[in-house]
Amino acid sequence: MNKDQVKGVTEQVKGKVNEAVGKVTDNPGKELKGDLQQGAGKVQKAYGDAKEDAKDNAKRNAP
């Protein structure tokens, strides 16, 4: 697991917390912030996943 994957998952968790707090406190701004954090986290994790896949493929195809 690389740093982008870890940061992406962390951002998703923070986003879920912010979204839940926004719902409980009836704060649409906080809820939206949580949604955006989750989206950003998913993108960062996907980037990290792609980097890992590329690294794994390079190792497999190395002479």
Rank of each mutant, 00 (worst) to 15 (best):
A40Y: 15
G48V: 01
E52S: 13
K23I: 07
G22D: 00
Y47K: 07
V17D: 12
A50N: 14
Q37D: 15
G41R: 00
K45Q: 15
V17A: 14
L32E: 14
G48K: 01
D53R: 08
V17S: 09
T25S: 07
L32N: 10
N18G: 07
L36P: 06
Q37P: 06
A20M: 12
T25D: 14
A40Q: 11
E31N: 08
G48W: 00
D26N: 13
E31V: 01
G22P: 05
A40R: 08
E31A: 14
D49F: 09
Y47G: 05
K45N: 14
E31C: 02
T25Q: 06
G29A: 04
Q38H: 08
A54W: 02
P28N: 04
K51Q: 08
E52L: 04
K42L: 10
K51T: 07
D53K: 10
D49G: 13
V43L: 12
A40P: 10
V21A: 05
N18D: 07
Y47W: 10
K23T: 12
V21L: 08
A54P: 02
N18Q: 14
A40V: 06
T25H: 10
V24E: 07
N27C: 09
K45R: 15
V43I: 11
E31K: 13
L36F: 04
E19G: 13
K30N: 09
D35A: 07
N27R: 04
A50P: 01
V24T: 04
G39N: 05
G41L: 01
D26G: 09
V17Y: 13
A54L: 02
V17I: 13
K23D: 09
D49C: 10
G41M: 02
A50M: 15
G29V: 00
P28A: 04
K45M: 12
D35P: 12
K33G: 02
T25L: 05
V24Q: 11
P28I: 01
L36R: 06
G29M: 01
K51Y: 11
E31D: 08
A50Y: 13
G39W: 03
D49M: 12
K51A: 14
G22N: 04
A50Q: 13
Q37K: 09
E19Y: 01
N27Q: 10
V21P: 04
A46N: 11
A54M: 06
V24H: 14
G48Y: 00
P28L: 02
D26P: 15
A54E: 08
Q44C: 02
L32Y: 07
K23A: 11
D49P: 04
K30P: 15
G41T: 03
Q37E: 08
V21G: 03
G22R: 00
N18F: 12
G39S: 06
E52T: 15
K45L: 06
G39Q: 09
P28T: 03
N27M: 02
V24F: 13
G34E: 05
G22I: 00
D26V: 04
V24L: 05
V43G: 06
K33Q: 04
K30W: 14
L36C: 03
V21C: 08
A20C: 11
Y47F: 15
A46Q: 06
K51P: 02
N18W: 03
D35Q: 10
G48L: 00
D53L: 05
Q44T: 05
E19C: 01
K45D: 11
G22Q: 01
A46W: 05
G22L: 00
G29R: 00
G29H: 04
Q44R: 09
L36T: 10
